[in-house]
Nucleic acid binder design. Sequence first.
DNA 1: CATGAATGAGTTTTCATTCAT
DNA 2: AATGAATGAAAACTCATTCAT
Lengths: 218, 218, 218, 218
Amino acid sequence: MFNKYPADDATRALTHRKAPQQKRSQMTVQSILQATMELAEAEGFLSLGTRRIAERAGISPGSLYQYFPTVEAILLTIYEETASRVTKKFRAKMLSIMEAPMETVGQKTLELLLKEYEANQLILHQMVIERPQLMMTPGAASLERLFGAGVRLYFSQFSGLNERDVERVSFFLDIVVIGSLRSYLSERPLQLSRKAFLDDLVKVTVSYVRSQNWKVTA
Amino acid sequence: MFNKYPADDATRALTHRKAPQQKRSQMTVQSILQATMELAEAEGFLSLGTRRIAERAGISPGSLYQYFPTVEAILLTIYEETASRVTKKFRAKMLSIMEAPMETVGQKTLELLLKEYEANQLILHQMVIERPQLMMTPGAASLERLFGAGVRLYFSQFSGLNERDVERVSFFLDIVVIGSLRSYLSERPLQLSRKAFLDDLVKVTVSYVRSQNWKVTA
Amino acid sequence: MFNKYPADDATRALTHRKAPQQKRSQMTVQSILQATMELAEAEGFLSLGTRRIAERAGISPGSLYQYFPTVEAILLTIYEETASRVTKKFRAKMLSIMEAPMETVGQKTLELLLKEYEANQLILHQMVIERPQLMMTPGAASLERLFGAGVRLYFSQFSGLNERDVERVSFFLDIVVIGSLRSYLSERPLQLSRKAFLDDLVKVTVSYVRSQNWKVTA
Amino acid sequence: MFNKYPADDATRALTHRKAPQQKRSQMTVQSILQATMELAEAEGFLSLGTRRIAERAGISPGSLYQYFPTVEAILLTIYEETASRVTKKFRAKMLSIMEAPMETVGQKTLELLLKEYEANQLILHQMVIERPQLMMTPGAASLERLFGAGVRLYFSQFSGLNERDVERVSFFLDIVVIGSLRSYLSERPLQLSRKAFLDDLVKVTVSYVRSQNWKVTA
DNA sequence: CATGAATGAGTTTTCATTCAT
DNA sequence: AATGAATGAAAACTCATTCAT
């Protein structure tokens, strides 16, 4: 797919080959991950290759293959770590302010999401764009539906809600929010300040929810 | 970036090498474009290569290079054609219903946009996802800001509007709408019907504009 | 099998990739075949590799792959050519002297066989020893049962013979003769002159046939 | 030859590096030999490698190198053990029936030989086919001339024989018998039963000897 | 103009072997 | 003695690109 002479995807697990057992090998794995990110930062994810990564990491090609069978596997490892960290943060934030007014909830969660996307732009944004197939790997703990999950979590504190409505709304918001975030990060238009974008996105999502006219009881 | 041994990007324009002036040449170019799309349909845009395209088009590698210096150039040609067609349609539609109520305008234009994205999914969606760098080519008449342009066009019929406000709103809507469309096409969630998605997107955009509380005069 | 990173045998035909159409490419193919034999002569068939063959042939690796997908394919081409030539010669010889006394027939055919094995020792003997898998390729027109076929041909001129007996005798002779030839060529014992070996082999085979006490009618 | 980066053959004896003197070491060596045979049984001798052998034997690569410098060394050890066992058996058998009629001697010794070749097919046949160079190692106590040695032993009980004739006959029989056995094991033709093959081989060899018309005195 | 043979740098991947721990 | 991490040379193979015919 991405690589020219890719290993047979079926026979090759996209994960570690063997778990590093000694200190030295832990360092090797770290150096691989770091070298990968450095290269990606400099020239994107499409031209990454095992040889260059190994070279940059200061190890031999053979060493790299002791731990990762594929460039894919390295990227997946990197992505999953970041994704799960962000997911946890997001969940925690949502749980901690769920009882605040909806405006506040929307504002805080979107703020967090945007901040994390910005802080991990290379991984969460660029990597996803340049290596879309990666996210389709079964088991890739994607962030795609993170916001929707948050919405569902939020509404779970109320009763009297039609479950299908909640589903529909969550999906719609997920699509709009994640899509907008992506577009925004891709373009970073000068005419639209970060604050303006965020405020309007909050406004739009909150007013969308309000427009559902749900009768809820805490 | 995409190719392994790409020609020096600086010295190589990403366009036709020479404009085909004879009938035979025109046919050759057509066969190249078609072969490219057929291959892309079958196996995506990432594995495309000059050799295979030439083979499928029934010409020799050397011939292909008479018309296109690069796979990118072929893809760009294909994209631009579609993009400009859709842009024209969109402009025409907007002009034809600009005077209708805002709900109608939003509904019709978004409907058209979604329909075109669906009809040209391979080019407008898949190609953009798998070859994101393509769109960054200077001069690529992207669709990215098509909706924003429509919004600006719409508001140009009113006077008394602050220009910067219009810019801000246009950009925001562009980002939300295009991002949402992309997300929707990527995911095609079962829980959210096409109609529901479209209706809600109209609702959200229109109510966003209304919330600006603009005093306008026709 | 032999190579370290062999192509998937199933998906890769062991034959020419494309038929050379121009004079130049005919020469290329010839240079590949010749370079292969030169290398094999110098260092055996086990260490052959595409890179070294190409280098010796004075062409690029890529060129080699235009005509042969594998070292195997090259060897097979070489073997088949020689095998079919020898087979033809042997058949012709047998047909031309079938009516002579059995001693003469045995002597002449074994003489021919030994001569050909000696003349093409590298291909018919060494290659078969070092690359035994090659002969198992379906369609490899092996010489393995050449002598047996000759025996059958010889007896076909008589009637009154039990077919199964003929089969048994042919197989036995094939095994003994081919096996002995191989052993002889492998060892080339000084204590046993070429002439002595040949004479005794004739004697043994003829007397084996005579001992069957077959009543035959021409 | 076989290995990619073989140690310099001159500086590296193809034997044990050090003789295992402790119990644990003995067990390690045994586990190496066994692991090698298991792998060979499963996938032949060509794809054997130190790493995989070590892994299967449950030891580290480094440990393997304490006992064997090379895969060849392991194979040679295995071969020699079997070869010397068979040689001993064969000698013993020959000595025990030397005085019986020649038909009996031929029948019994060939029977034994075939049986041993069948019982140790993997080592005596397959290994020799797939790793022919092994047998050329100086000092490899090959079975190649086992039958000839037996013939010489047999005739040593008679006097009045021309020594060079005995040599010639022994060599010839060696070549025919070993060659035939190999061919037979390679092909295992359905048209020729084991018994038929053996009987005819006895017949042929005995009658060959008889045809020498030697005047012998016990 | 078109052809297709040739190029060759560059990729992924393996595995015998060493050596610090 | 044993371990296992690291090595690095070499293999197979591809494909954008050129150029003589």
